[in-house]
Design a protein around this nucleic acid. Structure first.
Lengths: 339, 339
DNA sequence: GTGTGATATGTAACCGGTTACTGAAAACGG
DNA sequence: CCGTTTTCAGTAACCGGTTACATATCACAC
């Protein structure tokens, strides 16, 4: 039913090759012929079949994108960045949500391979998973986003999570806090969370504060996760005065719990987040957090992927974008009376 | 370089048809032969080429999804719903962001047609756009999400925006408010915003409150848009005591402005939102808003599309999901002293 | 031993584009 | 005006699967 270039060729009384040439502007076609072809295309309502083209050219003009959760604004932003860049290159994106499951990531990669995506931009739970090694040894180019560069041979765009965590915890220490806890994402779901906790511990350590295991809780990277974890941390005695959270969602969830208990922020307890989602500056109290350039992360990731595809870049590239400490007012000086 | 079923066939010493049959379990193949083929596939690292299959079967096993902005959690949720449903049917999704531009929507549809998606789930700025008519007359099945059913012949999943707006404005009126303003999304970017404003006006009218044009401002459906618009509405005299916002983002932006002016919510002014994004219940003050089942919207939309694809459903279906008024504490009784 | 139907497999055309190769026509130079 | 080069267009093979149709094999009944 949908017409093909052979139909067009027949109507315009030219060969299929000529139609193809008009379609691709790939070679010179006499203006008169071109017009005839264009008219024929119009006439029979021809719609180009990108699948046939892909089979023939071995280019799908599509890249795959895997994110843990598109509902997290950080990943929504970077996906938007990838998309904008890809679209500007004439590419489409196939999207997959992994729900922070490496098994799902692996499955999505397999589907993407079958669909012959030309490359993948993915944020995975941990780059040390075995399937990443397999992917590395296949010739399918891919770029990791947000992940920890445990392997220098992988293409990756990220920030320095360790340093960022260190800095924001140090901010709490400078404010006088000594009893600091952390609510982290489950380590097996996010290598970022693991490394942020390492930055957290290192900072405590280097400031002569001993770390207690019960002051660190792993949870879901969601409002609900933060809310739940905070309930547990509130039981700690002597009470913690500052909490570093693995992301802003957790931070906001924690704040909700604290408010429900009738405590004040930052008067009784300071909360630090991570990501600087747009919400963070509209929240009350405005969230002190680490800004990471999410949209840029997507753009840079896509850009790197396309450079690899075009051969402009060869070896592994690891791009570390700048983060910054955003001081707002969810963290304040420790309450000396309570100390 | 990547091997094909012909390579596999050669190694296993069978015909390509047999390999294809093993791959698709489409016909009985003797167990011994099957094993030989499977071994050969393993041996030469064969990866199925979905593109070739698509060309041959005329099924891309892919659907297109168009959203105005994936960074809006409402659309992120519904996209997740679509994705989950599609994946469970073995389908992938191609994603497109339109940035609320109908021109972009149209372009994305064209790309999707070329890529031979089997159907589209889209949220468009206004279903009365000309390209929707064109789409309707092409044989590509599609389902609209969130849009207003101006055209009964279109497949669509939505809520009753008019009624929902009416209800929440009535809630404000019941709280004693008489001077109520609205911050709406630009009407040309969102038919929802237009209809919500109609519900708003109708409610005022039926409660004997005369509507003033200057009390309604159109803006971007973002924090920033709400923040900006609220600055203008704060100039209105006598001051408004309640504001209905087209979505929660706008509501939160408006609250930010109000807080910056040193006014109290809901003491001085009540703010009502729309959407009930997860954030709304973590926000301070917790947002009174209209809940709409975003994830479900995606699931239902995808479900409807697949039913159409399978022929299980024929004529146009319009599914109106339930919304609900969520009363929290960003709206309170009007301050009688100020009245 | 032969006929019959079921089962297993092979052959080759087809999906709808691209493109290498070839030939015809036009342009150009002397 | 003729040979050479350039421009324009056509033929057909190819991309990697699917599948209609044909054929071969086998079991079984009589």
């Amino acid at each position: 039913m949908p017409s093909t270039i052979r139909d067009v060729a027949k109507i315009a009384e030219v060969s299929v090759a000529t139609v193809s040439r008009v379609l691709n502007r790939s070679a010179t076609v006499k203006e008169g012929t071109r017009q005839r072809v264009l008219k024929a295309i119009e006439e029979c309502g021809f719609t180009y079949n990108a699948i046939a083209r892909s089979l023939s050219t071995r280019k799908s003009v599509t890249i795959g994108v895997i994110v843990p959760a598109i509902t997290n604004p950080v990943f929504a932003q970077s996906t938007k960045g990838i998309q904008d860049f890809a679209n500007s290159c004439g590419y489409s994106i196939i999207l997959g949500n992994s729900d922070y499951s490496s098994k799902m990531e692996d499955q999505l990669v397999e589907v993407f391979k079958e669909k012959r995506v030309e490359g993948i931009v993915l944020t995975c739970s941990d780059i040390r998973h075995e399937y990443i090694q397999r992917l590395k040894h296949s010739k399918l180019p891919f770029v990791l986003l947000y992940n920890i560069p445990f392997d220098k041979e992988l293409n990756l765009v990220t920030i320095d999570n360790y340093k960022a965590a260190y800095e924001i915890v140090e901010h709490l220490i400078h404010l006088g806090h000594r009893r600091i806890g952390m609510i982290a994402g489950y380590f097996n779901m996010s290598d970022r969370s693991l490394v942020r906790s390492q930055g957290f511990k290192a900072c405590l350590n280097e400031h002569g504060i001993s770390f207690q295991q019960r002051d660190l809780i792993e949870t879901d990277l969601t409002f609900e996760g933060g809310k739940r974890a905070m309930k547990t941390l509130l039981e700690v005695t002597p009470p913690l005065t500052g909490i570093f959270c693995s992301n802003d969602f957790i931070g906001m969830g924690a704040i909700k719990t604290i408010r429900e208990k009738g405590l004040r922020i930052p008067g009784d307890i300071s909360i630090a987040g991570f990501d600087d989602i747009e919400m963070a500056s509209y929240f009350y109290p405005e969230l002190t957090t680490i800004h990471q350039p999410a949209y840029q992360m997507g753009v840079k990731g896509a850009e790197l992927l396309f450079k690899i595809l075009s051969g402009e870049v060869e070896g592994p590239r690891q791009i570390i974008l700048d983060h910054s400490l955003i001081v707002r007012n969810s963290c304040g000086p420790v309450n000396q009376l309570k100390q």
